[in-house]
Amino acid sequence: MTLAIAAVATLIAAIIQRITGLGFVLALFGPLVLIYGAVEGTTIAVLLALAASLTAIPMVWRDIDWRRFVWIALPGIAMVPLGAMVVRMLDEAWLLILIALLAFFALTAGKIPSLSRLFVGRTGAMASGAAAGFMHATSGLSGPPLAAHAVGDRWNQRSFTATVQVIFAVLSLGSVITRGLPTTNTIDVSILIITTVLGIIAGSLLSRFVPAAIARRAMIVIAWCGGIVALIRGILLLMGIG
Rank of each mutant, 00 (worst) to 15 (best):
V33P: 04
S190K: 04
A45V: 02
G227D: 02
G180F: 07
T2H: 13
V164S: 02
Q17W: 08
V33I: 12
M239H: 11
I19V: 15
A103L: 12
T108W: 08
R122Y: 10
L74S: 08
S142P: 03
G240H: 08
G180Y: 06
I187W: 13
L50K: 09
I72A: 06
G226L: 03
A45Q: 03
L11Q: 12
A202Q: 10
W71N: 14
L101V: 10
A230S: 11
G21L: 02
Q17I: 08
V229E: 11
L146H: 04
L50R: 08
S159T: 10
L98A: 09
L48E: 07
H136C: 12
S142C: 05
L95D: 07
M79W: 05
F119V: 04
I235G: 12
A51H: 04
A73L: 06
I241C: 09
A150I: 09
E92H: 05
R158E: 05
R62D: 07
R233C: 12
T55F: 00
I228V: 13
L22Q: 08
G199L: 14
A215L: 07
W71R: 13
G83C: 04
L11E: 11
L96D: 08
G234A: 11
P31D: 02
I72G: 05
A78C: 09
R158T: 09
I177R: 02
R62H: 10
V25T: 07
G199P: 13
I72M: 06
T123V: 14
H136T: 13
L28R: 00
L32E: 04
T184N: 05
A213K: 15
L236D: 13
L231K: 06
Q157N: 09
L48P: 06
F29E: 10
S142A: 10
G30W: 07
D188W: 12
L181E: 09
L96P: 00
I200D: 03
L50F: 14
A9Y: 04
A109S: 11
V46G: 03
G152S: 08
G203A: 07
L107V: 04
N185H: 09
G203C: 02
F29I: 14
L48Q: 05
L206T: 06
W155K: 00
L3Q: 01
T2Q: 15
R18A: 12
I235Y: 13
V151N: 09
F69N: 09
L26W: 05
I191N: 01
L26C: 01
S116R: 11
A6T: 05
I15M: 10
C225A: 15
I235V: 15
V189D: 07
V33T: 13
S116H: 13
L171R: 02
G133A: 05
L48Y: 07
T10N: 12
L3F: 06
W61L: 15
V189R: 01
F134S: 11
A147R: 07
